[in-house]
Each structure stands twice: as C-alpha cells, then as structure tokens.
Write a protein that binds this DNA or RNA. Structure first.
Length: 489
RNA sequence: GGCCCCAUCGUCUAAUGGCUAGGACGCUACCCUCUCAAGGUAGUAAUUCGGGUUCGACUCCCGGUGGGGUCACCA
C-alpha cells in the first residue's frame, strides 16, 4: 500500500461494536483485521462501544463482546473496560461532545434543525417511491430562516441534519479497493442528532474516530455507501481524513450477508460447540486473505507478520462450517494431552477420573473435529449402553444363540486374565484365539464392539476394553449374551 | 428501482499479459485396518457471457448477465 510508507503518525485502528446482545463472528472478523493491521505496524487497537441506539441496547452485551475477544486472543490496547488516553470509550458517556460538535456545525451553517414529524417524513418517502424517485429528505427545514429555526428549537422537538451538497462527487482511495466515487446528489441530508438528543452513528463515529486519533478505518463493505457522508462530515469539521479500508462481507451459504437465520453467528456458539479459538481465528484469516506461501494452517503471530491490506480480497467469501471443522480437528490433533484434558473439561462427565480421561483422549483425539463430539465417541466409557440385538446380529451374521455363546466364551477367556495382564495386546490375542471358519475377525470384533459400546462405530476396541476394565467388560459381554437369548427363545 | 461493490473448481483461494490454470476443504477410489477416524496415494471439478486491445489474455478496456451491499431519528 503506497500511502503507508509516508505515514508519520502512529497507526491506530478500532473495532466499534454496538451492544445488541451477541458477539457476532463478523465483528470478530473485523476485529481480527484491525488488530492485525495495528500490530503489524506497531500501532494500537482500540475497542469502542457504540451504544447510541437506546432501543436496541441489550444490557450485558459489552461483557459478551469483551469475553469473546478475550477468548479469541485479540486483546485491545484501549477500551471501555480498560480505559485509555481518550476515555470514555462508550458513546453514551460522551454525549456532550456530540452535541457540542453538532452545534458547531449549525453555527457554521453546515447543518440545520429539522422539525419535520416522522409522519411527514414517512408520507414524503411514500410518494417519492411511488413516483419512482429515490427517497430523500426534501429539504423543507433547510430553507427555514435562521431566526425562525432558532426560536422553534426552543420549544419544539427537532433533529439536526447535515447539509449535503446537491452536485459534485465525493471520492476516496480505499486501501483495499482503490478509488471509489459517489455522486453527491445521491447523499441525503443525514440526521446527525436524533430527537432524543443522542447522536446517530454517522456523527458519533466521525467525532470519536477523530478525537481518538484513529488512523485507519477498517470495516466491512456494507459501510461503503455511508462513507461519503462521513467524508462530508470530516470536511465540515475540518478534520484530517483517516485511511478507509472496506473489507469483504462474510456471507451465508445462500450468498446473503452472514446472519443468524442461515448460519450460527454468535462467537459463543462456536465456543460452546467446542471450536478452539485458534481454529476459528485461523479460519477467519483465510476469509478474503491468503498466506503468501499458500499455507492453510498458521498462527495469529504469523498472520500479523504477513498481513497487509493490499492482499485482502474484494469478493465476498462464504463462511463454510466444513472447512472450519477440518481446521478445528487439525488443531485438536496438535494439542498436548494436558492441554486437551483442560480444554475438554466442560465437555466431560464430572465423575470422570483424570487417568482414565488421559487414556480416552489418546483414543479420540484423531476422531473428533469439535470438542463436543467427545461424548459421541466416549459416552460408553461412563455409562453402560443399551444394546440392540438386531444391530448386534447384523454384525455377527449368525444366529442369536451362537452369537450369545461366542460372547460368553470370550467373557470366560477374559475371566482368566489377571488384572496386570489386562492390557490391549493380551485382550486382542485372546479374541483372535476364538476365531475359526465361522467367525471372521470382523464378525467377532464387531459383535464385541456392539456388546460393549452399543454402537458400530467406536474408538479401537481393545484399547477401549483396557480402559473400560475387566469387570465392566465382562459384565457387558454377559449382558449382551443374555439379551440375545431372551429375545430369541 | 437508484447508487455502490463484486465475479477462477460446490466452498476458501493462488496465478496481476506468456504454465498442462496451482493448493486447501468436500467428494470418489485405493492402501492401512476390528468399526470410525487419522495418515498415505490417486482421482473429480473452475477462469459468467459477448465484444475489443495484444504476437499472446484469468489478468487490461467496453457491454450484457449474475450475485451482494445500501438507500431510517439502526448500527
């Protein structure tokens, strides 16, 4: 990026979520890019809470956002929870600033009071749309004399609107897309201050980005069409423009903007499913960006080292759970036993013993893609399964009686093993000794598998038996044999 | 609909005028094997269309088509 080279000021980027309930993966994605860009350039990453919409505010959302970013390993240098040189970092605590700047605009003739009722606005929009025009404010109050406007403002409710030029163009050099130009006549007289005295996003974001010395505004492409409004405001205030960079918008498999209707979007959901933060972050890195060496798996540190805005793609990627799952499985496989034991804690029965778990982990680590799949593979260790005789017989391919007798025979042989001999190779040897021309390895071992686990899919049989223990294994074999004979007499 | 953005295998992407268009996920087959995985090997599949520019276009230009975003006193 050419204009980076002459940058003398510090790079300061920010993420500015609104507290509406969840931590969105789209927010995490934008945070990741802003964080990486700041760190790459030795700058600061700021977290600002944009809570100027009182109707949509959900108490507690801030904590959800903080904890999601903490989980993901994307720490901020300044923010509403930790403060900083430009605090407060919560917009509802900065109200006077916005009022002050809005009034300055009115004094300079760059903005005006608007007294139009929402009914009039709605009616106006309706007729405009019927005529096939684009709905825009008709500028009624813009024409009002200053004295009239001032006196009405003393008694009536009003909003403050920006005066947008009717001709000319507004353009900027987008750091990921190049020059973008928009005709001023398509820009509405944007509301800056609402009738409740709160600023709109457009005013607050410009004022705060300026006051907080944000150098690079890196945000999703859905903001492209409001960027000219922001530039107009920067100019009206005489502020220095930041670099704008509009990143691709994450999409659902149906190609629409990523939303909870079609896709899990809450970071918390991924956490609860047992996705590892490294995997989610790594996957997000692959959205609209690629490693110069074509690597798919790399650390956040490596990403920071290699990240650049000009390598960011402009087309909109689809968020694909399948590839994320693969990546997650890969990260799980790389974990140490101790780490996995720790990570698995929320997904494992409380009664589970540590030694036992370490053994189980060795058996399932290559099989699970998310941590919550632990129970799918390992639940039989903690609870005797319900054995379905039909499923069992389908594996043995022999009559119930013969199958039951074989299971009992295996149980008897196992009975002869001492506790110290209760080891995988011995268990397997004992099993293989029972093979003959009627019992192939597959028939016998699959039958035993169903008897012990209730399923046709499980971790390796003899390793599982070693962990399950002598008493429990024999008990389950005997019980399966009983079920077979009861059902078929 | 106006405006804006975008267009390489099903998906994520590489290749910015010169290669048989590469890699990854997924899928298929084989190997391994007590099942499922993991691992290994092989395979499947793409430059949206039409015009230009050029000795030569995935790559540059124009148009069509398609997709997305945005048009609030929400962010």
């Amino acid at each position: 990026m050419v204009w980076d080279k002459n940058l003398t000021m510090t790079v300061r980027t920010r993420i500015a979520p609104s507290p509406t309930g969840i931590a969105h993966v789209g927010t995490l994605y934008t945070a990741l890019l802003n964080f990486a860009y700041a760190k790459k350039n030795g700058g600061k990453f700021i977290l600002r809470i944009e809570d100027t919409d009182r109707e949509r505010y959900v108490p507690g959302s801030e904590q959800v956002i903080f904890s999601a970013l903490r989980w993901a390993g994307i720490p901020h240098d300044e923010g509403s929870d930790i403060g900083g040189p430009f605090e407060p970092y919560t917009q509802s605590q900065r109200l006077e600033k916005y009022t002050q700047y809005a009034n300055q605009l009115i004094e300079n003739g760059k903005a005006y009071h608007c007294f139009c009722s929402s009914e009039r606005l709605a009616a106006m929009r309706k007729t405009q749309q019927e005529k096939g025009e684009l709905p825009m404010y008709d500028g009624l109050c813009r024409k009002m004399s200053q004295s009239q406007s001032e006196s009405r403002a003393k008694t009536e409710k009003f909003v403050i609107r920006l005066i947008a030029p009717d001709s000319g163009n507004t353009s900027w050099i987008d750091a990921v897309r190049g020059t973008i130009t928009i005709e001023n006549k398509t820009i509405d007289d944007q509301v800056l201050v609402k009738s409740d005295g709160f600023p709109t996003y457009h005013l607050a974001v410009v004022v705060d980005d300026h006051l907080m010395k944000i150098s690079h505004v890196i945000r999703a492409e859905e903001w492209i069409s409001s960027t000219p409004k922001h530039i107009l405001l920067y100019k009206a205030f005489g502020f220095k423009l930041p670099v704008f960079a509009h990143t691709p918008l994450l999409r659902n498999p149906d190609k629409s903007k990523l939303s909870k209707r079609r896709n899990p979007v809450s970071v918390l959901w991924y956490q609860e499913q047992g996705f590892l933060p490294e995997a989610l972050v790594n996957y997000l890195c692959l959205m609209g960006w690629s490693h110069p060496d074509g690597k798919d798996i790399f650390s956040l540190e490596e990403f920071i080292k290699l990240f650049s805005l000009d390598r960011v793609q402009t087309s909109q990627p689809i968020f694909d759970l399948e590839k994320l799952r693969w990546l997650n499985g890969s990260y799980i496989r790389q974990k140490s036993d101790a780490d996995l034991l720790n990570l698995l804690k929320p997904f494992v029965p409380k009664s589970a013993k540590k030694q036992e778990l370490i053994g189980i982990i060795a058996l399932i680590r290559d099989r699970i893609k998310t941590l919550n799949e632990f129970s799918e593979y390992a639940d039989f260790f903690f609870q005797a399964p319900k054995v379905d005789s039909q499923i069992l017989l389908k594996q043995s391919k022999l009559e119930a009686e013969k199958t039951g007798m074989k299971l009992l025979e295996y149980a008897r042989v196992l009975e002869g093993l001492s506790d110290t001999d209760w080891k995988m190779p011995n268990l397997e040897r004992a099993g293989r000794q029972l093979l003959d021309d009627r019992w192939s390895p597959k028939q016998l071992f699959m039958s035993v598998r169903v008897a012990l686990t209730g399923k046709t899919v499980s971790p390796p049989l003899f390793d599982s038996m070693e962990i399950l223990g002598k008493a429990q294994s024999i008990k389950r074999l005997t019980r399966a044999a009983e079920i077979l004979t009861h059902n078929h007499i």
